[in-house]
Write a protein that binds this DNA or RNA. Sequence first.
DNA 1: TACACCAAGTTATACGAATAACTGATCGAA
DNA 2: TTCGATCAGTTATTCGTATAACTTGGTGTA
Lengths: 347, 347
Amino acid sequence: MAGSRPKSGPTMHDVAAAAGVSQATVSLVLNSASGSRFSEDTRKRVRDAVNRLGYRTNAHAKVLREGVAGMIGFIGDSVATTPFAGAIIEGAQQRAWEDGLLLLAVNTGGDKELEAASLDTMLSYKVAGVVYAAMYHRRLEVPEALEGVRSVVLNSQDREGRVPSVAPDEGKGGYAATSRLLEAGHTRVGMINIETLESGLPAAVGRYEGYCTALEEAGLDADPSLVRFGQGGEVHGYKYAMELLTSSNPPTAIFCANDRGAWGAYQAASDLRLSIPRDVSIVGFDNQATLAPFLRPGLTTFELPFVAMGRRAVELILQDAEPDGRVELMDCPLIERNSVTHPKEMP
Amino acid sequence: MAGSRPKSGPTMHDVAAAAGVSQATVSLVLNSASGSRFSEDTRKRVRDAVNRLGYRTNAHAKVLREGVAGMIGFIGDSVATTPFAGAIIEGAQQRAWEDGLLLLAVNTGGDKELEAASLDTMLSYKVAGVVYAAMYHRRLEVPEALEGVRSVVLNSQDREGRVPSVAPDEGKGGYAATSRLLEAGHTRVGMINIETLESGLPAAVGRYEGYCTALEEAGLDADPSLVRFGQGGEVHGYKYAMELLTSSNPPTAIFCANDRGAWGAYQAASDLRLSIPRDVSIVGFDNQATLAPFLRPGLTTFELPFVAMGRRAVELILQDAEPDGRVELMDCPLIERNSVTHPKEMP
DNA sequence: TACACCAAGTTATACGAATAACTGATCGAA
DNA sequence: TTCGATCAGTTATTCGTATAACTTGGTGTA
């Protein structure tokens, strides 16, 4: 149902009149900080009137007096659309609501003009801060208008290092993924990456570095013939896995830097009549909700901590301390399923 | 970077002082409706001062005077989280922004208390209306506070029929899906549904009714042995497809009421060494972004019009006419891929 | 008896922008 | 010359809330 257009509801003055007191009394009673100095009788009359009239405070009047609104701006390039990262907005909203704040959300789809315009509107609403979220982990330039506003870059890093950022710890993730395979007893561990190192993509670079570090710590030489760089997606995952598994000295385990690549590897293994994990162990990355749990066998992978990152970003906005422009990296937890076991030669 | 806390920026008075005019002049020049009556010189001085000071209008003051805010409330049970329907929020936001409005968004996760509280906060911000979105198509009860507010139920229907609703046209979708198979020449068309009819789930009931209507119009008797009701998901899809395809008189085509069920059917076909679409044609429903395009062969399916529905819901809120409590059903477009062809016996 | 002090309120004002109503000055026409 | 119209602005008020500062009547106490 819809009400007639500008029926803006009862105000404090209406409540005051109904309760037979002044508007100030109503205000003081409701924001009961110092409301205790009124008689029980008066307080009751005020509260009754509030209920009877269905009074609801006008947030705009309040903000006008107090300067800051109970809202946080959320700008995402595509974050609500990608199946992937809807969780990021969920985490942000959860945390915001714990402090009674709402999210003023916009998806720009990468449109810089829309971005600037909506940021402008947000600022004119005096948001308490702005979360600037990216669909995937990269280094980006923040809009100029963010300077001088409390803001946090989410799932990416400010190229200039001026705005604090929250992002997944790709290095640690790659390290943990590789370690999981090494601990299972594998010594020939391949990697299928999602991008070249030249791309500078933190996800690709970080996960690869973690892979190398883990091998190194285990006293193994990184064998370049076991590593493939290219594009994400199951088509390339298939192609690279085929190459690796049909080589003269194939790996017994593969770390795929994303789940879709892992899916391609599953198809390759299937075509080669190799069983996962008996013949090849696979570890993925991303824990893609619509994919990883449904593969047979379930894919052991690492989760991008979207909810936690969303929460943390809002937390940085809410905290009193002046933030520095540091990047905060968050752990990617292991999601254990059934795609990893010992190599065949092992007991 | 973050500014010191309550630095609320320059006001119109500051601009007026800087330009050597009165506050009213600034207001009139900026909202240039009747601003033309000022001299070019004055207008230039005002605009220069605005730029120099970085003035941005205070939206709250504006709303306070004008009564309605440039925001639309968006309440979803899980809509931003489900990979499925993030598009719904995208469509709503797109349409809202075309009128310069922002979305005040909350995901309740089904928590009625959070729902009530956030709705309350939204109303205190004088939103122009509220979109109440559900994760899946069902009949639901809207919160009481929505009465007397301009509101629309999205991707579901108000059980009481008082709030206007926007939902996918399941019946038409089921009809079109079945027709697609009939037109290809199939006469034994099976269906794997996502729920029992007793569930009353509009998606299950509607798609089944569409299936029946299409058969009827084609002069075919609905053969109950070709239909399975149960739960969605690939596990049940697999099981039911197995049953259908190994029966004495198997269907040559199956309409799976969702894509995950279709995935299960793919696996069953694969296990039975049946080729899709040569041996069995499959039509899905939902066009699940992370699944349908990646199946081999690509799954021919129907798209839930999330973006269009989101847009339409906001449009209903923005329109001047008093809305009736009608349900508006929107078409599910066919997404043609490669899982349908003629039955074997045909030329 | 005079004074301080408290309880239980009220009055007045500010927040920032929009706008109706007003003021002076200038110009044209009767 | 005088009235009217037009131009180029200004003044004053309003929206709804929060709060500092004030009022008023009653108590306690020295």
